[in-house]
């Protein structure tokens, strides 16, 4: 009797775990385009702050962070705080990217597209800054299109695949 209850509980746990894994993977496919879009909007706002208003980076990044949702908002805020504390831009930008790596659905390629911007941010005149920022926007746009396609292909699949794998595992054990 007890062994039946125990094995039932184990199977339930396996099903729950696999379903959750499937849902988490599906969510990451759903979140990635949204976060890429948010990053692109943030960079576009940075163009306005830098090119038209000539706002210093720390303030510009703080302003941008206030208009975006987490985790992108936190990325801009972290970077801005680092610069305000006189840390080099490259280092502050890397701190922000490290945060995105652990707290967002973004992939290595997405972060790599941003990493290049950290090398040139703030070091040249407005015209040159605009060129680099718009280039980053174009890269993010291409990644966004790709992320939307992947989400359409994989999100729904992973929602079912999780539970399906759980069921298969339970059947194999039985």
């Amino acid at each position: 009797m007890w062994s039946l209850v125990l094995s039932g509980a184990c199977f339930g746990l396996i099903l729950y775990a696999s379903t959750m894994v499937g849902l988490i993977i599906a969510k990451s496919y759903r979140d990635r385009p949204r976060q890429l879009q948010s990053l692109r909007t943030g960079i576009e706002m940075l163009v306005t702050e830098i090119v038209y208003a000539a706002t210093p980076l720390s303030v510009a990044l703080e302003n941008v962070s206030q208009s975006q949702a987490k985790p992108v908002a936190e990325f801009f805020a972290l970077t801005g705080r680092g610069i305000a504390e006189f840390r080099p831009v490259r280092q502050s930008w890397a701190t922000g990217l490290a945060y995105l790596q652990t707290s967002s659905a973004l992939l290595w390629a997405d972060l790599e597209a941003l990493r290049l911007l950290g090398e040139v941010l703030g070091v040249s005149n407005r015209e040159d800054q605009e060129r680099h920022l718009l280039l980053a926007c174009r890269r993010l746009e291409a990644l966004y299109v790709n992320a939307v396609e992947e989400a359409a292909r994989n999100e729904r699949m992973w929602q079912f695949l999780g539970i399906l794998i759980g069921v298969v595992v339970v059947i194999v054990i039985l």
């Binding site: 830098i50 706002t55 210093p56 720390s58 305000a84 703030g122 040249s124």
Partner: peptide, 10 residues
């Protein structure tokens, strides 16, 4: 960098 707040464009 410190004097220009890392923002030479500004």
């Amino acid at each position: 960098a410190a004097f220009s707040q890392s923002s030479l464009y500004a």
